[in-house]
Design a protein around this nucleic acid. Structure first.
Lengths: 323, 323
DNA sequence: TTGTAAGCGTTATCAG
DNA sequence: CTGATAACGCTTACAA
C-alpha cells in the first residue's frame, strides 16, 4: 500500500509537505496542496495510523473494564461510547469474567500506550495495585473510591435507597425485606446503613433474618420466592438493589399466583427497560449521565480542558408494584 | 519511560537481544536472558505496542459495527468479545446510529491498519461500497450477503419462523397475525415467505391486513394492543420476529387484562432472557454461537488456519404463551 | 512556502 | 548465541 513517501515522490514534493497537507498545519501553497490532494485521491492513500500513534503517542482509543455484561453495564457502555465517538474516540471493551489478571491486562494497555484512558466499572484488584497506573493516563471509576488520583462518577446510593424505603413506608409497609447486591461493594454498605437509619427513624424491627446479600441476577430474584413461601412471618415489602433482581422476584411471584402489591410491594433500582416492562416501581439511577460524565472527566484530563459535568440525582418512579 | 535501548544498555547487550528475550524467538543464553529479564523487571519496562504495531502491521484489535444497541446485539457482542479475548484480541464497538458515514469510518480504520478485522452486524451502505474494503482485512457479517468476498454467519430465518408457525397451528391457531421486523432486511422476506408457504400448506387465508412490518422494540409490541382492541375479527395467534416485540405485546396484554394463551397465543424469536422472564414461547436463535463463528472466520483468515465452525440450528422453546 | 533529516520504539535480516 | 543496522510510516524542528 502506498505510503507518504510515495505520494511525495509522485506529487514532486517532500513527505513533510504531504504531511502538512494531510494535517492542515504549517503553510502550503494552494497549488501544492491541490497537487498533493490529487495524488492522494488517485492512489487512494490513507496514513498508517500506527505510525501516527507511534509518533504522537496517542491512540484515540479508550477502554472500559467490567466483570461481565449486565443491563446497567449496557446502558453505561452505550452512553459512554456515544459520547466518546462524538469527540473522535473509540471504545474497546474488556470483559474480565472476574479474572483479576484480565483487569490488570487492560491497565497494562494503558501503560503500553495502546489506550488513552480507562473506565473501571467494578474493581477487582486492590486500589493500591491499580493506582500506580494513573501516571500512564486518565482513569475513572463508577464505584466510589477514596483516592486522590482516581476520579469517580459514583453516586451515593444511600439517598436513592432511602427514597425507596420511604415510599414503601408511606404506602403501608412495616415489614420490609432487603435484597442487597454484591457483598463487597460500598453500595451495599450504604444501602444497609440507609435501612438501619430507616428502622431507627420509624422504630421498626430491622429483622436480620430478612436481609439478603449477594443477589444480582434475575434468577437470584426468582429464587427468593422459595424462601418467601416458607415463611410464616412474611414481609410485606421488598427493597432491592437492582431491577433485575426485582424483575425476577415479580415475575416468579406472578407465576406462582401471588398478587403484587396486595400480597407484598416491590421496589426495584436502576429504572432500566425491564422495570418499565414489568411495571415495577423503581428508583431512577441516571447511569447514562454518569457515563457521559465519565467521558467528560477523561476528555478534560486528556486535553487539559474543563468541561462541566452533568448534575446527578436519584428519582422515585412510581409504578404498579407498590401501593 | 524506558525503551528497549535503555534496557539493552543497562543489561550490557544489544536491543536485538532484548527483543529476543521479550518475544522468545531466536537463541538467547540462559545467562543473558536472566540478566535482561532482571533489568526489565527493575525498570518496570513494557514494549510500546504502537511501535510493535507499526513494525508488524497488526493491532490485535477487531471491530464490530452496529446501528444501535439491542438485546440481541448485546448477546452477540458478549460472545464475540469473549471468543476474541481468548485469542488475545480486543474488540472495539462502533455504534453508527444509522449514520452511513460512521459505518464507513469503521471500515476506514481497517484500511488505516488500526483494526485487524471487522464484523458488520447490520449493513447501512451498499455492498459494492463496502466490498472493496475486504482487501484490507477479514470482514464478516451477520446478515445474509450474496458476495463471494464477505463471509456471513447468517442463518436463514425461514426454517426458524416456520417452526413457530407450525407450533401455533398445532396448538389450534387458525388466524395468525405476523409482526415482522425491519422492512429492508432479508430476514423479513424469509419470514414472509414462510408465512405464505404456511398458509398455502394449511389452506389458510393469509390476511394481509394483519401483517405488520418494521416492528422492533418493546414499545412497538405494546402498541399492537391498540390495534388488537379495535378488531372485530381478532387473531388467535401472533408470530413475531423478536422477543422484544413479543415481550411488549405480552406485557401490555396482561396489563389490559387479556389472558394468554386463552385469548391469543404468542411466539417470540431469539430466546433471550426477557422471553424466559415473561414465560414466552419462543424460537431459540443461537446468537452466541453465531458470534463465535464470526470470530473463528476472522481468526482463520488472519492466521491462515482452518478451525471448524459450530453447527447452527433453530429450536422451539415451548413456554406459557402458547397452548 | 518547502525540503532535510532526525527521531518515535520496535522487529528482523545478516553477519560474525 | 549475539550485535549492527536497516526498515516500518509518520511528524516536526530546523534550514533554506
Amino acid at each position: 500500500m502506498a505510503n507518504i513517501n510515495e505520494i511525495a515522490k509522485i506529487a514532486g514534493v517532500s513527505s513533510a509537505t504531504v504531511s502538512r497537507v494531510i494535517n492542515r498545519n504549517g503553510y502550503v501553497s494552494d497549488d501544492t496542496r491541490a497537487k498533493v490532494e490529487a495524488v492522494i485521491k488517485k492512489l487512494d492513500y490513507v496514513p498508517n495510523r500506527n505510525a501516527v500513534f507511534l509518533k504522537t503517542g496517542t491512540t484515540k482509543m479508550l477502554g472500559i473494564i467490567a466483570p461481565d455484561f449486565s443491563d446497567s453495564l449496557t446502558v453505561f457502555l452505550r452512553s459512554f461510547t456515544l459520547a466518546a465517538q462524538k469527540e473522535g474516540y473509540n471504545v474497546t471493551l474488556f470483559i474480565t469474567g472476574g479474572d483479576k489478571q484480565k483487569e490488570l491486562d487492560a491497565f497494562e494497555m494503558l501503560r503500553h500506550k495502546q489506550l488513552d484512558g480507562l473506565v473501571l466499572v467494578i474493581r477487582l484488584n486492590d486500589w493500591d495495585q491499580l493506582e500506580p497506573f494513573t501516571k500512564y493516563g486518565p482513569i475513572v471509576t463508577w464505584q466510589r473510591v477514596d483516592s486522590k488520583h482516581i476520579p469517580s462518577v459514583f453516586m451515593n446510593h444511600y439517598q436513592g435507597y432511602m427514597l425507596g424505603l420511604e415510599h414503601l413506608y408511606a404506602s403501608g409497609c412495616r415489614n420490609i425485606a432487603n435484597l442487597y447486591g454484591s457483598t463487597r461493594g460500598l453500595n451495599t454498605k450504604s444501602r444497609m446503613q440507609a435501612y438501619a437509619d430507616f428502622c431507627q427513624k420509624y422504630k421498626l424491627d430491622p429483622k436480620l433474618e430478612q436481609q439478603f446479600k449477594g443477589l444480582n441476577s434475575i434468577e437470584d430474584g426468582e429464587a427468593i420466592l422459595d424462601w418467601y413461601a416458607e415463611q410464616s412471618d412474611k414481609p410485606d415489602g421488598f427493597a432491592t438493589s437492582s431491577d433485575a433482581v426485582a424483575a425476577g422476584l415479580v415475575a416468579e411471584a406472578r407465576r406462582r399466583g401471588y398478587n403484587i402489591p396486595t400480597d407484598f410491594s416491590v421496589v426495584g433500582f436502576d429504572n432500566i427497560e425491564i422495570s418499565r416492562l414489568l411495571d415495577i416501581t423503581t428508583i431512577d439511577y441516571p447511569i447514562a449521565k454518569q457515563a457521559q460524565n465519565a467521558f467528560t472527566i477523561i476528555f478534560n484530563q486528556l486535553l487539559y480542558k474543563n468541561l462541566p459535568l452533568l448534575p446527578l440525582e436519584f428519582d422515585l418512579i412510581k409504578r404498579k408494584t407498590t401501593r
